[in-house]
């Protein structure tokens, strides 16, 4: 009996804390979003806040914007990360291990730098009076500050996408690099014997092997960019806002009676992100089952 119960006792501290703080918070948020909010003197359960939300164009504009930004961010980070990783792998010099490790540290820098810092770097580079515009002006390519396009705080969200692409590409690269390292150099030579060039080696051999990890890590980036707050808070425009910023504004700017609506946004966010998380997990599981099949 004792050995059967041991694992549960051991996981109890971590699981208990997460159940109370994380799941407890989610459930409390869900209950309040359904209208049970004693702090504002509301005791009845209803779907009014969801109805209100789903019938407002603010919400739908936010949702569409959030989807578009998350999709474009994760796609560009994914493509960029894959490109960098495969380039470094295919062009790798044999026997330069130590030097490579120093570079790898350096490539981790975007992962370590906080999002707020990275977003501000984009502001300094790409505003109309930013560094890029200054460089173009001194090269004589533009003559007035307004000749430089509005890239930061524009309603398309290009600055947010660019920040995420730049910041998350190293994450994708780091996730797929271990898979690349398991591919033997002899495989490339073998494919050469059968007449493959670098491109067809990539398409026929590397791509299928990388696909599961690439998709699952791109899903993680999608889920993250879908629900992260700091970057759109700094770089976004007042309308339309990304969902986390919309929730924050409803939560802080209105009175107590506006809070259930913010929490309803949060519940919708949590549901979407969880679906994405489960999808990412499933994809990586399928991959590790294939892995036991051996290659």
């Amino acid at each position: 009996m004792w050995p059967n119960i041991k694992p549960y006792i051991y996981v109890l501290p971590t699981a208990g804390v997460l159940l109370i703080l994380f799941v407890g918070g989610l459930i409390e948020g869900l209950i309040q979003s359904l209208g049970y909010f004693p702090a504002a003197g509301q005791y009845g359960f209803s779907l009014d806040y969801y109805r209100q939300l789903l019938s407002s164009s603010d919400f739908w504009d936010s949702l569409i914007l959030t989807f578009r930004i998350a999709l474009l961010s994760s796609l560009s980070a994914g493509v960029l990360g894959m490109f960098v990783s495969v380039c470094l792998f295919m062009l790798k010099r044999p026997g330069s291990g130590r030097k490579n490790q120093i570079w790898q540290r350096f490539f981790q820098l975007p992962l370590i730098v906080p999002h707020l810092v990275w977003a501000y770097l984009m502001v300094l580079l790409f505003t109309q009076s930013g560094w890029l515009s200054r460089i173009l002006a001194s090269l004589g390519w533009i003559h007035h500050i307004n000749d430089f396009p509005v890239l930061v705080n524009d309603s398309f969200g290009g600055d947010i996408i660019f920040t995420y692409a730049w910041k998350e590409a190293p994450f994708i690269a780091l996730m797929i690099y271990p898979v690349l390292l398991r591919i033997h150099g002899s495989w490339f030579e073998a494919s050469r014997v059968f007449g493959a060039n670098r491109w067809s080696f990539f398409r026929e051999i590397l791509l299928p092997l990388l696909m599961p990890t690439w998709i699952s890590s791109s899903f993680i980036v999608f889920a993250f960019t879908f629900s992260a707050f700091e970057v759109p808070f700094l770089l976004g425009v007042t309308y339309p806002r990304m969902l986390p910023v919309l929730s924050y504004n409803l939560y802080t700017s209105g009175g107590l009676e506006a809070r259930p609506e913010a929490l309803a946004v949060n519940v919708i966010l949590a549901v979407i992100v969880s679906i994405l998380g489960v999808a990412a997990y499933r994809l990586s599981q399928r991959w590790s089952m294939d892995e036991q099949g051996g290659w």
């Binding site: 703080l21 994380f22 799941v23 407890g24 918070g25 989610l26 459930i27 409390e28 948020g29 869900l30 309040q32 993680i220 889920a223 993250f224 629900s227 992260a228 707050f229 986390p244 929730s247 924050y248 939560y251 809070r259 913010a262 929490l263 949060n266 966010l269 949590a270 992100v273 969880s274 994405l276 998380g277 990412a280």
Partner: peptide, 10 residues
């Protein structure tokens, strides 16, 4: 995956 601010607001 699920950001912490959702729990904290709740």
């Amino acid at each position: 995956i699920i950001p912490a601010f959702i729990s904290v607001m709740g």
